[in-house]
């Protein structure tokens, strides 16, 4: 679905005459391969390059060096630009700044309109997408009256209506409250499981990634760790060094291990930890 080879991107700062004054490397020789239908998470703190990477998948940015393919299409190929953007949709961080329509359904229709979809089909797609994200009853509302989580779900529906095979969500929950955050993540999971859409979730909230199929951890423009959630979260010390959070259950298990209690690595959920502890107790 998505493949990056030696992907590198420099932000350039131009002086007044338009010459490159300074460069800052945001993504540094990244190699990755994302298979169709997977739920992928990219973790990293601000400035780690994860958002820059995300913008490459939608061809908003093109690599300074290296190559990125979306469904076999090179993002540098300008003729494929609109195909790539239709194929890999993108949801951004700020819910207010990505809604174009003044009525929910009109906003969802914006993408298909740009693709030149016939009118009747636009209506079908809009209805279907709004139903999938659970916002159908708000179709005639103004986006300004919705909560942050609802706005993000409208934005997701707007991407869905373009019938993409992959959706990149760039910190979609950073500006939301806990219940909004949960509703957006649930929606992303549903799209992945029920519609088979590949999800690339960029985030710094670790509780959102425990269910992911695969996690990439980025730091300073590089992929520094990758693996399943259980694998990633068994490296508590490394994650702490990267100043990333670890699920609370994992932290507690780690604390107990340090106190000499023999628990396995990679515990992610409360239930898991409680089970393990009860087993230990029964053996005592």
């Amino acid at each position: 679905m998505i493949r990056a080879e030696e992907l590198t991107f420099d932000y350039e700062r131009l002086d007044e005459e338009g010459k490159v004054e300074s460069r800052r490397r945001a993504v540094d020789h990244v190699n990755l391969h994302i298979r169709p239908g997977k739920f992928i998470a990219v973790l990293g703190h601000n400035g780690s390059g994860k958002s820059t990477l995300a913008k490459h998948i939608n061809a908003i940015l093109t690599p300074t060096e290296g190559t990125l393919w979306v469904d076999g299409m090179d993002t540098k190929d300008e003729e494929k630009l609109w195909n790539i953007r239709q194929d890999a949709g993108m949801v951004f961080q700020n819910p207010d700044n990505q809604i174009i329509g003044t009525v929910v359904e009109e906003d969802v229709g914006f993408g298909p309109e740009n693709l030149g979809v016939p009118t009747d089909e636009i209506w079908e797609r809009v209805e279907e997408s709004l139903r999938t994200v659970g916002m159908l009853k708000y179709r005639h509302h103004s986006p300004n009256k919705l909560s942050g989580g609802q706005k993000q779900r409208v934005a997701i529906a707007g991407v869905m209506a373009m019938h993409p095979r992959c959706i990149v969500l760039d910190e979609p929950t950073a500006m939301l409250d806990p219940s909004g955050r949960a509703s957006v993540i649930r929606t992303a999971q549903k799209l992945n499981q029920e519609e088979g859409i590949t999800i690339v979730l960029i985030t710094h909230y670790m509780e959102e990634v425990v269910e992911a199929d695969h996690i990439f951890v980025m730091d300073d423009g590089k992929v520094v760790m990758q693996g399943s959630p259980a694998e990633i979260f068994s490296h508590v010390e490394e994650l702490k060094k990267l100043r990333l959070d670890v699920p609370q259950a994992t932290l507690l298990a780690y604390e107990l291990q340090k106190r000499g209690i023999p628990l396995p690595d990679g515990i992610l959920k409360n239930e898991e930890l409680a089970d393990q502890l009860c087993q230990l107790k029964s053996k005592m």
């Binding site: 609370q248 259950a249 507690l252 409360n270 930890l273 409680a274 089970d275 502890l277 009860c278 107790k281």
Partner: peptide, 10 residues
Amino acid sequence: LMQALKDKGA
């Protein structure tokens, strides 16, 4: 978590 433990009889 503590609640889960308690529910399991701890």
